[in-house]
Amino acid sequence: MLIIGERINASNRLVAEAIVARNEGYIIELAKAQTDAGADFIDVNVGTGNQSQQAQMASMEWAVEVVQAATNKPLAIDSDFPGVIEAAMQKYKGEEVMINSVNAEAEKLETIGPLIAGRPVRLVALAMGAEGIPRGVDERLAACKAIMNQLTRFDIKEEQVYFDPLVLPVSVDSGQASITLKTIERIKVKYPQAKTVVGLSNISYGLPSRKLVNRTFLVMAAHAGLDAAILDPLDARTMSLIKAADVLTEKDPQCRRYIRAHRKGVLVT
């Protein structure tokens, strides 16, 4: 499974403070720790919720430079604002990159599509429109279809797309885990070249011992065909579960990566 390290996200208060104060050291440390822990991509989200788009663009440009200097891993450029993503891409060095995210809103696709055309960018596409997260599987698939129709206009290929089936809390609606899992399965059937990605933590909102629910759900999603996850790679137990799940879902031929992790002593049983 592809791991996108989630730690550099301004929704965390300490990260937000470091970004606002331009505290390079704190951000560099998070980038390095996630790289060492096995993240394949380092997510960068500077949205503090109360800053203007202009301020976020400046923060993003700064953060992209700082993080790229600290790690050889590619970044996942994460913002709700297409303008902020555009600013990041202008600073970005290297071919490999993930953009997080678009949805079925035409406006977003119009800005971000041209940034990707003809480049090997991986694009996270949320299975929703401007109105938010649809309750059911069919509506989420309809959003995927609308997105795919638009993307082909920009010469973006199916294999570049990481569909996010979206996750709502089971504490308020116990059917939600299975809706996400079914959406993953349906996406894999309908768009066999496309990948799937989720951010896990929403599933356990409102419950005690949230990590237990998150990890269990991750394993179930792996079985449903999940290709990538946005999570905390510094959580060694979760990373170990992923290594075992990769073996069990035929993503680790001859169990080589699993055994290597064992030899390094990083598996938590």
């Binding site: 109105e131 938010g132 809390p169 308020v172 609606d173």
Partner: peptide, 11 residues
């Protein structure tokens, strides 16, 4: 208008 999220409203 324009918003599908009803979990909070339902609670």
């Amino acid at each position: 208008k324009g918003d599908l999220h009803d979990i909070g409203k339902n609670i």
